[in-house]
Design a binder for these strands. Structure first.
Lengths: 237, 237
DNA sequence: AAGTGGTCTAGACCACTGA
DNA sequence: CAGTGGTCTAGACCACTTG
């Protein structure tokens, strides 16, 4: 017996899509109970295992949930969780490194990186331009360990995930982000060449490793010309 | 034979966690090939099916990927996709409805909802306060169909997902969001009682149904006192 | 007790890869 | 060709829910 049916997809995919259609079309609504695994297996002339594969997929997508001893139910949709892409790549922009300094951290940086005032920090400034006009400023701070020299690698990898990768396992990190609106400091206004009352979209990021150590802190100041951040929620069809 | 081992978890979970540890600890790195399903089945004294269940989990989490005919490989971590919660609930704030109007849409609203100038629109204003001080303003626009009367339901459900739910299937929608920084209009400054040069974090949202129809448009203006938006990326442990 | 989902087995055949 | 992952079967026993 072939595993691929006439529609060119495996049977478990057919079952998945049939159920997905029923849910997305409104034929079934949140809280409704689905057919049992045995009923579906009989309906599609297949084994329980194959039906379960479909159910696992739907459950992982958040369309249904299971309740042992009772059955599967249509889930409540989540419409308040958004995905946002915040790439370092800056496609369509020109990026230049302004400076790389070793500095004493101010209080904001000490607090973000959870370090003392005497722990030195590497500061990396990037200016993002469109048609030679600065539209954003990106500043990153990395604790500077005296023992380990500042590697070229680290500076060329002035992108947090890759700095991280150079030091330890790349899956052992997560990033926390805060987005707010603010006014530029004098220094930022100077670099960006904008007035002091220009509203800036500002993104703060802290890179945290598996042991809850702060290994990087970044701030990105964006002028309106940089464009908005885009996000979306919901389900794919 | 019991399905739960001494550690109180099913075998497939043990396998999953063992592999996850190897990846997150840096013992294995992106691009490395994992043991084959048959090798793992032998190593854990179990069947290929159980091993596959573990692999599916890890693949779904984005830690590994499979290549038919070759094997499983540790994936490149994604550190530029963030999850952001943007709830309507406004926990910790006081919310009051200021007005509900039926209006003629201006050009911005026409463009967002993809409607003509003569299609009427319902406008709903919410003011969000902390300790009696306005910290955010939320405006929503919904196309007003002459045929269907404005239901009380719709006004009390002045939350997009639920308006949607009242009309059709709740899984048939997605939301697109833009986040930017800007200055208030006179009207917004008036309602929020803020100066004209206060930087506002502004979130625009469009609710889109399965047929690509725009069914709602919302704008939320947030003063610095409202607090930042928070997001995170990375893997759970 | 009957029905549900959760875990697991020991096979089968297929499509794909690389030597 | 042998080895890999992809699909699928026809069972088994378990834990849980409901009547």
């Amino acid at each position: 017996m072939s595993n691929i049916n006439r529609s060119g997809e495996p049977l478990y995919m057919t079952i998945t899509n049939d159920l997905k259609s029923a849910i997305c079309s409104g034929e079934m609504n949140p809280g409704d109970m689905l057919q049992s695994e045995n009923e579906l297996a009989a309906r599609y002339g297949t084994s329980r295992t194959t039906v379960r594969k479909s159910m696992q997929l739907l459950e992982h997508e958040g369309l249904i949930y299971s309740w042992q001893g009772k059955g599967y139910f249509v889930a409540q949709p989540v419409h308040d969780t958004f995905s946002i892409h915040f790439s370092e790549e800056e496609r369509g922009f020109d990026v230049s490194y302004r400076k790389v300094n070793v500095i004493m951290p101010d209080e904001e940086i000490q607090s973000a990186l959870q370090i003392g005032p005497r722990q030195m920090v590497i500061e990396i400034l990037r200016i993002i331009r469109r048609r030679d006009v600065p539209v954003a400023l990106d500043v990153k701070y990395i604790p500077y360990d005296k023992g380990t020299p500042v590697l070229e690698k680290e500076l060329s990898y002035a992108v947090f995930p890759e700095i991280a990768a150079a030091k330890t396992a790349p899956f052992a990190f997560h990033t926390e982000m805060q987005i707010s609106a603010g006014l530029p400091t004098e220094r930022v206004a100077g670099v960006l060449g904008c007035p002091m009352d220009a509203p800036l979209l500002t993104v703060y990021r802290i890179l945290i490793d598996q042991n809850d150590r702060r290994v990087g802190y970044g701030i990105k100041y964006m002028l309106p010309d940089y464009g908005p951040l885009c996000a979306r929620s919901g389900y794919e069809f």
